[in-house]
Lab assay of single mutants.
Amino acid sequence: MIINNLKLIREKKKISQSELAALLESSRQTINGIEKNKYNPSLQLALKIAYYLNTPLEDIFQWQ
């Protein structure tokens, strides 16, 4: 199971779900699903999230 700190990191950087979704060329619903652990992002999307949040991938997503 993958757990994530996306919501915590996103809020700390003062970025809304909609703003992050626009940067990622994704939907706000996708970001919401990832944050609620209802959806696991593809590797490509996970890497883009890490890039746009300027945060190491392993700080956002962790195996448990």
Rank of each mutant, 00 (worst) to 15 (best):
M1K: 07
I9G: 02
L23M: 14
D59C: 13
E58V: 09
N4Q: 03
I15G: 01
K7T: 07
N32F: 05
I3M: 12
N32Y: 06
S16D: 04
E19I: 09
S18P: 05
E25T: 09
N37T: 03
L57R: 01
N37Y: 06
I34W: 04
K14Y: 06
S16F: 04
L20S: 01
F61H: 00
W63L: 04
S42V: 04
N40W: 13
L8I: 14
I34T: 01
N5F: 09
G33M: 15
N54K: 10
I2D: 04
N4P: 03
K14F: 09
P41G: 03
L6V: 04
Q17N: 03
L57T: 03
T55S: 08
K7L: 08
I49M: 05
E19Y: 11
S42N: 09
N54I: 06
M1W: 05
S27V: 06
M1F: 08
I31H: 02
S16N: 06
L24N: 00
A46Q: 06
L47C: 15
Q17H: 04
I15Y: 08
I49L: 05
A50C: 05
L23G: 09
K48T: 05
S18V: 11
I31G: 01
T30R: 10
K7A: 12
K12G: 12
R28H: 10
N37P: 02
S18A: 13
K12A: 14
Y52T: 11
P56F: 06
Q64G: 14
Q64S: 14
R28N: 08
E25W: 07
R10I: 07
Q44P: 10
L20G: 00
L20A: 01
K36L: 14
L53M: 05
Q64I: 08
Y39C: 13
L23E: 06
L43V: 10
Q62N: 06
Q62I: 10
F61N: 00
N40C: 15
K7E: 10
L20P: 00
I15H: 03
S27K: 09
L6G: 03
W63N: 03
K13V: 08
A22P: 02
I2P: 05
S27T: 14
L24M: 08
Q44K: 13
A21I: 04
I2M: 10
Q29N: 12
K14L: 10
Q64P: 14
K48F: 05
L57Q: 02
Q17M: 09
L45T: 05
F61S: 00
Y52H: 12
G33D: 15
L8H: 14
N37G: 15
M1E: 04
I9Q: 04
N5Y: 08
N5T: 02
S16Q: 05
T55M: 08
E35R: 02
G33N: 15
